[in-house]
Design a protein around this nucleic acid. Structure first.
Lengths: 192, 192, 192, 192
DNA sequence: TATGAATGAGTATTCATTCAT
DNA sequence: GATGAATGAATACTCATTCAT
């Protein structure tokens, strides 16, 4: 039951937004009563927190799995990480959108926890960049933290417009992003 | 009065979110009564729409001003456009955040109108890219539309983490973004 | 309107108790909607506090009026004070019962304020006793504070059983109490 | 188990009040589940009734024990009865407060039964007074019923303010009450 | 222009109670 | 004897909106 509530809630939160989705909406969808909801969750916010934590923890775990692979280059790791996010859209796009949109409805304490996970994800990525710089794969970046914000902004935003079932496949999208991130858009004039 | 209502509403919507800001909150801040609000606005949504339109129309106008300048390169135009967005954070950051966060609270009809402006902004940018490709400033992009989504995702996301009064100046931030967009992060190995 | 809400609430709180009286009950009785209630009161507790303060402040004022009369003896003052309480049953019996029964539903802060008024009422009475002792009207009491608790317990309890429209008139009741308080019930054997 | 439920309930009802104490609160304190509660009690009210009957029946029994002693005077019996009540505060203060405060939550049928016990207690006391009058120990009282209400109001109210572990011992308190009841507070002027 | 009173539909939450296991 | 899941009715409270003045 708890799982079903979470599942349907993600659906509704994605479709209508957290504040416009009432507990009534959720339980009606499942076909139980409000009492049941409160048997499993202390409050609407606790449910939201649950969704957030499930999502970010899972994502972090997969990120770590990719990062610890010792046999691939930093470039390849980065590609895999971006693919992780993009491919996630299809499977967990709803959770992801709820995760990015409804942060405001967490209370301060919850926010601190969630933000610590977010930071961890970012820092892991930053370390990858720095490792790549050291290994001569990437150019030296004065502010790798900001570069990370940029890359994540770009990739994460996909949740809002990218349709995995549309004309552009996930692999193509990742390739486009990787090309942009690695080479930029400027015409190469060094070949004079 | 109308202006004050809009101004204070942007403040409150940015601080607390649209759904958590009540009309009472707004009129209390100004020191008038709810009746006054409804004298100037038909509904809370109309106010939100107003904020959206004000924001996007102004942004579009400034974008067009930059684009029609015939004496600067596409690269420079792009830089100016990114600077436009970044510098906007300081001046209109609140509006901008409301604009990006609270779209969900518009109704379908309103959404269509706002989205048409958004698209216009994107398409203008895309034309710039394509012009740049033609002029040999930019590499050929199979999907310039997606590149635009990427660039805008990256730049717009700044509203959520960038602090204009922090250690990184607006110019620096724009430079970092431009470097990333133009050259990517890969170590250039062609010069060997 | 505010007055009507208070009036009907006292009625209902007296009849059914605070916790068993819903806001719905109150507004139904008056014929308005819940919104109206919350236009005038911030919460159910604020209403209860209002009732408490109205009651105790008025009672205190009348007490002070009696006490400051310089032309009557302490015995007579005490009689007047008891009469004040007893006669109050008819007029404000409902408020009085709410006042004594529903204290538990005030929050800590409110309780402190109300208790300070209660204490004031008690202390005024205690001063009267002590004045009477000084003037030789009353026997010396080692613990006049406890005597006051006793007297007030006796008199106040009347709210719960005394029917002003029954066979015992208010004057008779006061006389019985005064006789008990002044002379006790023991057969006087000193005159032999 | 049944006993533990009653015991903890008295505690909670005294601390938080009947209506603010949920079955959940009760079973949580004991460490069982709600099902258990309903195995032993048909309803929350039945539990309350149980507490009421336990209390008043026990008190009545002890009252009768005192009253049937043929070797002590009416004055002494009265003193013993008041001591019974006062000393009860320490041992059964919680039950006593629940007994006096939460009557309202009994339904009509239950109330009738409980009130019949209350009346019995009062009438026993009244008979004692009348016996005392006959024997010349007490002055003739036109309304011994009202005198009883007065005495009981005074003594019972102690539950709400008297602290058995404070500076006034139970014996002292009883003596103060007895002196007040027997002799009143008036300065005796008959000996001139 | 602006107010202030009132509405009414909605919202999260609580809780005594039931019942199959 | 005891559990745990589920119910459903009630509850305090919120809020966008209306409207006569």
């Amino acid at each position: 039951m708890r799982g079903r509530i979470i599942k349907e809630s993600i659906d509704l939160f994605d479709k209508k937004g957290f504040s416009k989705t009432s507990i009534q909406d959720i339980v009606d969808t499942i076909g139980v009563t409000k009492g049941t909801f409160y048997y499993y969750f202390k409050s609407k916010q606790e449910l939201l927190m649950d969704i957030h934590l499930n999502y970010i923890k899972e994502l972090l775990k997969e990120q770590v799995d990719i990062l610890k692979d010792e046999y691939i280059s930093c470039q390849e790791k980065m590609k895999k990480l971006i693919y992780l996010i993009i491919q996630n859209i299809k499977v967990h796009g709803k959770s992801a959108r709820v995760f990015t949109r409804e942060v405001r409805h967490l209370d301060e304490e919850q926010l601190i926890l969630v933000n610590s996970y977010r930071r961890e994800f970012r820092i892991n990525l930053q370390k990858l960049i720095e490792e790549g710089i050291e290994k001569g794969e990437f150019r030296d970046q004065k502010r790798s933290d900001i570069v990370i914000f940029g890359i994540l902004g770009m990739v994460n935003r996909s949740y809002n417009w990218y349709n995995p079932d549309g004309e552009v496949s996930e692999e193509e999208l990742v390739n486009i992003y990787m090309d942009l991130i690695l080479n930029g858009i400027k015409m190469d004039t060094s070949s004079t």
